[in-house]
Each structure stands twice: as structure tokens, then as C-alpha cells.
């Protein structure tokens, strides 16, 4: 089993874990955190695939995609968090559930 394959599978497992918690958590902050894990898992998978040939060349294109992806992900996270904070200011709630807002 090559090094890159280990990390590719790790990335997939982390993305899966993130996805599960993204779907099952109700707290929006926790959803965003889970979303970050999905992102990191997919990044890990993508970059590992760039080195999938043991002695072959390393593909710089996924690296470039992920490098900009990391920065874009952090800015998306910031925007989401700002939105959630404002939502909490207005409604006092951290979930989208109707029944909690009575």
C-alpha cells in the first residue's frame, strides 16, 4: 500500500465522517465545523491522487486547486459564521428547527 493511497483513503473516511455529522447535527455551528471536515477530507484525497504514481511525476494541478481551495474554504467559513452570528442575534436560536423557536 503506497503512502498516497493511505492518505487518499483517510481523506475519504474523514469526508464521510464530516458528511454524517453535517447531516445529523442540528446546531448550525457544528454543521459548519462538519463542513470543514468534509472539505479537508476531500482536499486530502485530491492531493494524494496527485502523487498516486509511486515514482512518477507529481501533478501540480491538484496542488494548485487545493491551495486556492483552502483559502476559499476559510473565507466561505467566515461568511457562514458571520451569517450564523447575525441569525443568532436576531432569533436567539442556533438551529433551523421550527419547534425550538416558540
Amino acid at each position: 500500500m503506497s503512502t498516497s493511497l493511505i492518505y487518499a483513503l483517510t481523506g475519504i473516511v474523514i469526508a464521510g465522517l464530516g458528511l454524517f455529522h453535517y447531516l445529523s447535527q442540528r446546531n448550525i455551528l457544528r454543521k459548519i465545523l462538519a463542513g470543514n471536515f468534509i472539505g479537508t477530507g476531500i482536499f486530502l484525497f485530491l492531493v494524494s491522487s496527485a502523487a498516486r504514481q509511486v515514482d512518477g511525476p507529481i501533478d501540480p494541478v491538484p496542488h494548485a486547486l487545493v491551495l486556492t481551495g483552502i483559502v476559499v474554504a476559510v473565507s466561505a467559513t467566515a461568511l457562514l459564521l458571520a451569517l450564523v452570528c447575525r441569525y443568532h442575534d436576531e432569533t436567539g436560536s442556533l438551529t433551523f428547527d421550527e419547534e425550538n423557536d416558540e
Binding site: 493511497l5 464521510g16 458528511l19 447531516l23 484525497f45 501533478d59 494541478v61
Partner: peptide, 23 residues
């Protein structure tokens, strides 16, 4: 989640090392 994760993992295991992409 399990189906998606397993499918992805299988896809990776099957296709690993075939092409070198855009390198």
C-alpha cells in the same frame, strides 16, 4: 454516508495509479 464513503473508496482502489493526470 456509508454507501457514499464505500463507493468512493472502491472507486479509488480500482482506479489508483492508472493515469498521471495533467502532470
Amino acid at each position: 454516508t456509508i454507501v457514499l464513503t464505500v463507493q468512493l473508496a472502491l472507486a479509488v482502489l480500482r482506479g489508483w495509479g492508472y493515469s498521471d493526470g495533467l502532470a
